[in-house]
């Protein structure tokens, strides 16, 4: 080990406990933290910030002894609840000489992590989609140009690197005996069962996970009319039907069909994306398809940047025309 490099040591994970419930994103941060701790050979500290520790504490009793756990109550005050988080986080960050601080990229995290960076004068990488150690340096990947391209941000070893992750991009592991909610569970909480959507289940389509061809719909489908058009295309191509997260949340398509980090990860020969934008959580599940086709009315949608064939236009007009064309 090159001792001239730095005497910064240790990984600090700033976990969230909301009224006794460990946030699902904390499992993701913990996973990122353990990955870094192992790769750098450095100790991990898990700071649990929030309220309701009596309920959360038992989960961490079985945690590996090498992991240092600390608890800090956060007493939020309206109308700016993030203020209390910055105060405590800044104290923890400056009390140590950390190599890396993993902070939340959740709704409230996005509010306070930039303030934490400003108060401590430390560099922050927000919206990170992955973490790694390259030649002893900590690096994160993140999307730039509105999701059209990716970049790697590397931090010198002589600065404490604050990393905030984009939620839903890391497969979460258990923390002690607190079973990790899978991302699919988290999403399923909001989503609906197949019967609530207008999907025609009487037709025998190939199963999504094994299908050679998949046609997936997003928010742009709008309603049952759109679903019918998507299904007609699936049947014309003998394809499975997939869905984006927004199509599931809007109850347009059922959760079993969701493709992405909290749905299925697939590598079909053909992936035809209809009326979906191509968020990082979605492309996580389909970027390795052999051929990608996109139909979207917004030419700026990131999905076009990974498409072999793109059609800019209204799906409600193009799908029926395409079905006609394929039948002839």
């Amino acid at each position: 080990m090159d001792t001239t490099m730095t005497d910064r040591s240790g990984i600090l994970v700033l976990g969230e406990v909301f009224a006794g419930i460990i946030s699902p994103h904390t499992h993701e941060m913990f996973t990122a933290g353990t990955t870094l701790a192992e790769a750098l050979g450095q100790p991990l500290t898990l700071a649990m910030l929030g309220t309701g520790f009596e309920d959360a504490e038992p989960y961490l009793e079985s945690l590996d002894e090498s992991i240092n756990v600390v608890w800090h109550e956060v007493l939020e005050e309206e109308p700016f609840p993030y203020m209390a988080w910055v105060d405590i986080a800044a104290q923890l960050v400056t009390d140590g000489n950390w190599r890396v601080v993993v902070a939340p990229g959740t709704g409230i995290g996005v509010d306070w992590t930039p303030r934490l960076a400003a108060r401590t004068g430390l560099p922050l990488a927000s919206w990170s989609t992955g973490v790694e150690v390259i030649d002893g340096q900590v690096a994160v990947t993140r999307d730039v140009l509105g999701g059209r391209a990716e970049t790697t941000v590397t931090c010198n070893a002589d600065a404490t690197f604050i990393i905030a992750m984009e939620p839903g991009m890391i497969a979460p592991s258990n923390i002690g005996s607190a079973e990790a909610l899978t991302l699919a569970d988290v999403f399923a909480e909001f989503s609906v069962d197949a019967s609530a959507t207008s999907v025609d289940t009487s037709v025998n389509r190939p199963p999504l996970k094994e299908a050679e061809r998949v046609v997936s719909g997003g928010r742009g489908l709008v309603d049952a009319e759109g679903v019918k058009k998507l299904e007609a295309l699936a049947d014309a191509l003998n394809a499975a039907v997939g869905a984006s997260g927004a199509a599931v949340l809007q109850e347009i398509l059922p959760h079993e069909m969701q493709v992405g980090s909290s749905g299925v990860v697939i590598r079909p020969k053909l992936y035809l994306a209809v009326g979906l934008s191509g968020s990082p959580q979605h492309t996580y599940g389909m970027k390795d398809a052999q051929y990608i086709v996109a139909i979207n009315q917004d030419e700026g949608a990131p999905i076009f940047q990974m498409a072999d064939f793109g059609v800019v236009g209204d799906l409600h007009k193009i799908l029926p025309a395409l079905v006609e064309e394929l039948k002839s």
Binding site: A149, V153, I292
Partner: peptide, 17 residues
């Protein structure tokens, strides 16, 4: 303290029609 690599599309190749 940070170095950003040049932005690069995650997926390339293909016909890109």
């Amino acid at each position: 303290a940070l170095t950003w690599s040049a932005p690069m599309a995650a997926r390339r190749g293909g016909d890109r029609i």
